[in-house]
């Protein structure tokens, strides 16, 4: 691990003053469950760490008129255990519980889940985010069973590792990003991006910004998350789906279906949204919606099975939402 400077601010104002204009100048340290291993493996060596765990205003989960406010430094466990979340947003609680390591739930934060780097094994082995040394994609020509089946037409073939992103997008959340020159609000579905160049990131956050809060509007939706994950113990999902349905009686008036772990960013399956609008939800409808969600899939040499898994995730998430409280 390269030597680094350690800063321990107690206010957001102080923290954003310590950030840099380039990613290698400073990194935000929250739970550290991802950042520290990146540093130990020399994949990322920032010159300064800005610890945000001592900033009180970044913690906590509370509700007000605008909706549910989740502090970026709230832990994944707080989210999983929150009665407010369980009551209104089962999809978010389910996604949080899908992080199956109690240690990571206890240390990891909501902001950290959204900002963590991909688990692509070529990237983690030091081959770059796009894993294309000399312009040739190691992923396309190599071991890609865990890689992207959607949105993989560009150089990025990894999958977004975020567990909470799909649920937050489906629920229409808004993120607050703060810098020393002010703050801006970004819709969750605009927060994630697919990078096209080595050195860029998978999120819209700039190096000098800090993610401070996530606001989830009280939308009155039926919502659920379903994860296809091989192990009960700590394991990354192979495919997930988060759905949020606005109902009019037994009919879906509008739907948001968002897939996780299948694309370089949480994948908004708008074909499924359109298919579901105006339909009453049966298993056959859910199955057709799942097919629609994956209609544009472009699997790589070893991961066609993930198309099937993602379909199952969509179908089961829809059926779970249909059974859930409205």
């Amino acid at each position: 691990m390269q030597p680094f400077e350690y800063a321990n601010p107690t206010t957001v104002k102080e923290a954003v003053g310590l950030l840099g204009n380039k990613w290698d100048e400073a990194a935000v340290l929250a739970g550290g469950t991802d950042l520290i291993s990146l540093m130990k493996d020399y994949v990322y060596s920032p010159k300064r760490l800005v610890n945000i765990k001592n900033i009180k205003e970044l913690g906590g989960i509370r509700a007000d008129k605008a909706g549910l406010r989740i502090g970026a430094a709230a832990t994944i466990d707080e989210l999983a255990e929150s009665p407010l979340v369980a009551k209104n947003f089962p999809s978010l609680a389910q996604a949080a519980r899908g992080v199956t390591s109690p240690q990571i739930r206890n240390m990891g934060t909501v902001g950290g889940d959204l900002c963590q780097r991909p688990r692509c094994w070529y990237y983690r082995d030091g081959q770059g985010l796009l894993a294309s040394p000399g312009g040739r994609s190691l992923v396309t020509n190599g071991e890609n069973k865990y890689h992207a089946i959607l949105g993989n037409g560009g150089p990025a073939k990894f999958v977004s590792a975020s567990s909470l992103g799909p649920a937050l997008i489906a629920l229409g959340a808004t993120l607050t990003l703060q810098s020393s020159s002010g703050s801006r609000k970004v819709a969750a579905d605009k927060f994630f991006v697919t990078p096209s160049a080595e050195g860029s990131r998978e999120i819209a956050l700039l190096p000098n910004e800090l993610l401070t809060e996530i606001l989830v509007p009280m939308g009155g939706t039926k919502n659920a998350t379903y994860e296809v994950r091989q192990k009960e113990a700590l394991d990354w999902p192979l495919a997930t789906a988060s759905v949020a349905l606005k109902m009019s009686g037994s009919t879906v008036s509008s739907a948001r279906v968002v897939l996780g772990h299948v694309a370089p960013m949480p994948w908004a399956a708008t074909q499924a949204d359109q298919f579901l609008a105006g339909k009453s939800l049966t298993e056959a409808v859910a199955e057709d919606a799942a097919k629609a969600a994956l209609s544009n899939a472009t699997p790589l040499s070893q991961n066609a099975y993930k198309v099937q898994l993602a379909r199952v995730a969509v179908k089961r998430a829809l059926m779970a939402a249909a059974g859930a409280r409205g």
Partner: peptide
């Protein structure tokens, strides 16, 4: 994480 071993629940 990808050299997978069973946990209690598995």
């Amino acid at each position: 994480e990808f050299y997978k071993l069973a946990g209690i629940g598995d």
